[in-house]
Every structure is written in C-alpha cells, then in structure tokens.
Simulated assay, not measured.
Amino acid sequence: MSGEGQGTSHWFDDEAGPVVRPYAMTRGRTIGAAQDRLDLIALVVAEPHADDPEADRTLSPEHVDIVELCRDAPQSVAELAARLDLPVGVVRVLIGDLVNGRLVHVTRPVPPAELPDESILRDVINGLRAL
C-alpha cells in the first residue's frame, strides 16, 4: 500500500482557516434551554450588567460575540446567525446558554394581529394635524 496522498492532500483549501464543527461549539447539544422562544425574528438584548463578557472564562468566543453584537441594539436570531456566519441551530443553543447565564434576554416583536389598525392610526394623524 502506498503512502500516496497521506499528509499531502487537503480536503479544504489553505485560505479556509481553522475548521470547527458546529457541534463542537455547542458541545454536542442541539436544543438550548430557551429554544421555544427562539424563532428567527426573536430579538436578543444584552443585559445592562453584561458589560464585559470577555472576563467570564466560561464563555466561548462565540458567546462573547453575541453579547457584543446585542449591546448597542437588539438583534434578531437570524441577524446574529448571518453576522457570525454560523448555522441558526448553533446560534439558538448559544443564545440559550446566555439566557441561562442572564447575560441576554429574548423578546418577541409585536405580532401583526396586536398592532393597531392602519385606519385608526391615520385618523389619529389627521386629528393631530387638525390641531
């Protein structure tokens, strides 16, 4: 048997950087604690006391990135997945960890059924203009 191809061929190109499987980031978990509230439009907000997530040695770099991204403005789960270039499932598990650690909280946008009717809003605007 020849040693051809051993140690000389790559299954990825050199510019790809280090390859970390998503299950390694989540330690094999596929469901987080807050999974039921984490659809794509759920908004993740950093807690005010989470001002230095890098000081917490239990957090992975991805956890820290999520807290940092949510510090200035709420971010949706979909936005976080896109900005971190990670699968949504991985981001959901990581957010669940942060919710358990009380570093972020998750809010839901107002459902369309609970928004005021457009005609009511127009009437209010017209009434204000008439003043």
Rank of each mutant, 00 (worst) to 15 (best):
D14I: 13
A16K: 14
G17F: 01
G17S: 04
V19G: 03
V20F: 10
R21V: 11
Y23M: 07
M25E: 15
T26K: 01
T26L: 05
G28L: 15
G28H: 07
T30D: 14
G32D: 08
A33G: 09
A33C: 09
A34S: 14
A34G: 02
Q35C: 08
Q35V: 09
R37D: 14
L40Y: 01
I41N: 14
A42M: 09
A42I: 11
L43P: 13
V45W: 03
V45C: 10
E47S: 08
H49V: 12
A50E: 01
D51T: 05
D52E: 13
D52N: 14
A55W: 00
T58Y: 05
L59G: 04
L59S: 06
S60Y: 06
E62S: 13
E62A: 12
V64F: 03
V64L: 06
D65C: 10
I66V: 14
I66M: 10
E68C: 08
E68N: 08
C70P: 14
C70A: 15
R71E: 04
R71Q: 11
A73V: 09
A73Y: 06
S76I: 05
S76P: 08
V77K: 00
L80A: 08
A81H: 04
A82H: 13
R83A: 10
L84K: 07
L84I: 05
V88F: 02
V88C: 05
G89A: 08
V90W: 00
V90E: 15
V91I: 02
R92P: 07
R92A: 05
L98S: 05
V99P: 02
R102Q: 11
V106Q: 00
V106A: 03
T107H: 03
T107R: 12
T107D: 09
R108G: 05
P109I: 09
P109M: 10
E114W: 06
L115D: 11
L115A: 13
P116I: 12
R122M: 15
D123P: 00
D123Y: 12
D123S: 15
V124R: 11
G127R: 01
L128P: 09
